[in-house]
C-alpha cells in the first residue's frame, strides 16, 4: 500500500465518470434518458462524489501531499480524539452551535411570541431588511464586525460614553472574549433568517385557535406553549439544522477575523482542517478531521430532523 492516494484515486474518478454511460448497452430507451443526466451528473461525480470518497481514503494515510503516502489505519482518528488541542477545537464548534443555532432561535421565538396577535404592517420591508445579513459575503461581514469590535470601534465607544471604559478591550484579540465575539457574529447572521421563518410560520396558524385558547382563559405564556411553539416545529427544525451546519462550518468568519487566535482560543474544526492540510501539510490528519466533522454534521442535523418529525 505505498501507492499515493492521488494516483490510485485518479483511476477511480475515471471509472466513476464513465459509470452512467455504461447503461447505454442495456436498452436504447434508457440510454437516451441518461444522456440528459450525463452532463450534470458527470461534473457532480468528478468534482463532488469522488473527492468525498478520496477524503475518506486519505484519512487512513500519513501523507504530506508530496512524498508517497503511508497507510496508518485508524491512527489519524486516534490522534484527533486523544489530542487535547483537537478536542478543544471540536469543543469550540459546539460553542459555535450555541451562538449560531440555539441563541438566534430563542431570540426569534421570543420576538415572534410577542407578535403572534399582531398583523404586521410593512411585512415585506421588514423581511427584506432582516434577510440582509444572509446575502452579504462572509468576508464583508467579517470586515464590518472587525471594526465594530475594534479598539476604537463603536462597542468600546458606547462603553466609554457610559463610563464603563474599564470594560473596553480589543474584543477579538482577548483570550476571554474572542470566542463569544466570533460567535455573536454568527448570531447576527442567523437571527434574521429565524425571524423570517417563524413570522411566516405564525401567519399560517389558524386564528381560531388563539380565540379558543383565550375563551379558555389561557394567558400569553400558555398560548405560546400550547399553540405557537407546536405549530412552528417545522420552521424551528429548519432554523436549527441551518444553524448547526453553519456553526460547524464556520471557516470564513474565523479566517477573516481572528485566524483561530489569540492562541487557539477560536480554532474551529474547519479552520483546523485548512491549517492541517495546506499549512502544516498533514493531509491524512486533516482528512480524518474532515470526515469527523462531516459525521458530526450529519448526525446532528439528522437527529434534529428526526426528533422534530416524531413530535409532529
Amino acid at each position: 500500500m505505498t501507492d499515493s492516494p492521488s494516483r490510485s484515486s485518479s483511476t477511480n474518478s475515471r471509472r466513476a465518470a464513465k459509470r452512467p454511460a455504461a447503461g447505454e448497452a442495456l436498452s436504447p430507451f434508457k440510454a437516451r434518458h441518461l444522456l440528459y443526466l450525463l452532463p450534470g451528473l458527470a461534473i457532480y461525480i468528478v468534482f463532488s462524489i469522488v473527492p468525498i470518497l478520496q477524503t475518506l481514503e486519505y484519512s487512513f494515510y500519513r501523507w504530506d501531499g508530496i512524498t508517497p503516502a503511508r497507510w496508518v489505519g485508524m491512527r489519524n482518528y486516534v490522534a484527533l480524539l486523544t489530542n487535547p488541542k483537537t478536542l478543544s477545537t471540536f469543543g469550540h464548534g459546539l460553542v459555535m452551535i450555541l451562538f449560531y443555532a440555539v441563541l438566534p432561535t430563542l431570540i426569534a421565538l421570543f420576538i415572534v411570541a410577542i407578535m403572534t396577535r399582531v398583523r404586521i404592517r410593512l411585512l415585506g420591508f421588514f423581511r427584506t431588511v432582516l434577510f440582509l445579513p444572509q446575502i452579504l459575503a462572509t468576508v464583508v461581514v467579517a470586515v464590518a464586525w472587525r471594526w465594530i469590535y475594534a479598539n476604537d470601534g463603536p462597542i468600546n465607544g458606547v462603553l466609554d460614553f457610559l463610563g464603563l471604559g474599564f470594560l473596553s478591550r480589543a474584543w477579538l484579540g482577548d483570550f476571554d472574549t474572542a470566542l463569544p465575539a466570533v460567535g455573536l457574529i454568527g448570531t447576527w447572521v442567523s437571527f434574521g433568517l429565524c425571524m423570517v421563518l417563524f413570522i411566516g410560520g405564525v401567519q399560517r396558524i389558524d386564528r381560531g385557535l388563539y380565540e379558543a385558547a383565550r375563551l379558555d382563559g389561557a394567558g400569553p405564556f400558555r398560548e405560546f406553549m400550547a399553540i405557537t411553539l407546536p405549530s412552528l416545529q417545522g420552521e424551528i427544525s429548519i432554523a436549527l439544522i441551518l444553524g448547526v451546519t453553519n456553526a460547524l462550518r464556520n471557516f470564513d468568519i474565523v479566517w477573516n477575523t481572528t485566524s483561530g487566535g489569540p492562541g487557539t482560543s477560536t480554532l474551529v474544526p474547519s479552520y483546523f482542517i485548512y491549517e492541517a492540510a495546506f499549512i502544516v501539510r498533514n493531509v491524512g490528519l486533516a482528512s480524518a478531521a474532515a470526515v469527523l466533522l462531516t459525521l458530526v454534521i450529519l448526525l446532528m442535523t439528522g437527529a434534529i430532523g428526526r426528533t422534530m418529525r416524531q413530535r409532529h
Partner: peptide
C-alpha cells in the same frame, strides 16, 4: 421518469448535505 431515478436522487442527496470541507483537500490535489 426513467427507471433508476430513485438511485440518482439518492446520489444527489449526498451532495446536498455534505460540507465543502469534505472535498476540498482532494480537489486541491486534483
Amino acid at each position: 421518469r426513467f427507471r433508476f431515478r430513485t438511485i440518482v436522487f439518492g446520489v444527489l442527496l449526498v451532495g446536498l448535505v455534505m460540507p465543502s470541507e469534505s472535498r476540498i483537500i482532494p480537489l486541491y490535489s486534483m
